[in-house]
Design a protein around this nucleic acid. Structure first.
Lengths: 159, 159
DNA sequence: ATATGATAGGTAACCTGGTTGTCTTTGTCC
DNA sequence: GGACAAAGACAACCAGGTTACCTATCATAT
């Protein structure tokens, strides 16, 4: 019945949004108010080795100023700390706080749960097929979205 | 190898963005500068029967003020006209201009082309399967994204 | 016939997540 | 020591949203 290409785009966006909206709602219910995708991404990047604001900006493909704004809210909420770098007075080293890791782990659990729910609906093989194909789509595109290789999967313990 | 739920969300967003970014680039190359998804959606909604700014806002699930801003740029670019409604002095009737339809048709063609390219890569059945499953995901979600039933598929001729 | 309430639109102030441009401080390399 | 690069801070701006509030017009009930 031939969906249009625009439909496809809409479906992809819709899928993302239904996942993310559900996650935001559940995080809020768990007491973490107003966690946005950008917060999650940024904390993962920091946990994954983005030590400075400038580096964070590069990894997220945004300007360092934009990264600085994000860091400011993260810091204000106590999810990220900024401390002077002993070896370089220009830098302020970023680190995710235990509380930040908690948010990250919660978010992860929620996403996994949503994914599991969907897997149950459409079947395991179908889901992996979708993921594989999406990965090739994203990978094949003249990528504006930087390959999210920096996404840290093992959140470990909050030290 | 178990992708996480967060990966899935990222893949969906990435898929949307690679499609949309490519479309924006190609539309720009065709002389239509800075066509954003929101412009396309809004014009489709208008073409599909959203006669007033308030109605447009309702259909796009944004405030009427936000819709008014979008209409302002659409009008400025000559893609949409606003004319007083003869039967109701409060209303200003919206209509997509021939130029606006041209943009819409161009965008549609580009999306279809991108979809076709992808279909070639992963196979027809796979793509339809993905679309079907995405549709259930989006449909099943306690939908923040209003069902885009208003999306007009047949752009017809610019009259 | 008019008062009441709903609706269309406009204006203004504000938020978020971006941008560019400019500046200072600090580090590195020759 | 001098030139340049990099980190961060600050300001102005933009897009696309929000809420609050105002006026004009229409519809309806009494």
């Amino acid at each position: 019945m031939s969906r249009s290409g625009a439909d496809l785009a809409l479906l992809l966006l819709g899928g993302f949004r239904s996942l993310v909206d559900a996650a935001i709602v559940e995080l809020a219910a768990a007491g973490y108010d107003d966690v946005r995708p950008v917060h999650d991404f940024a904390m993962r990047a920091i946990a994954g080795g983005a030590e400075t604001t400038s580096e964070l900006g590069r990894r997220l493909s945004v300007s360092k100023q934009a990264a600085a704004k994000t860091v400011a809210v993260l810091q204000e909420r106590g999810w990220v700390r900024r401390e002077p770098d002993p070896g370089d007075a220009r830098r302020k080293r970023l680190e995710v706080t235990p509380l930040g890791f908690e948010v990250l782990r919660r978010g992860e659990a929620i996403f996994d749960q949503l994914r599991a729910r969907w897997e149950q609906q459409i079947g395991r093989d179908e889901l992996t097929a979708i993921e594989t194909h999406l990965a090739t789509l994203v990978g094949a595109a003249p990528g504006r979205l930087d390959t999210p290789g920096w996404i840290v999967h093992d959140l470990g313990e909050p030290t």
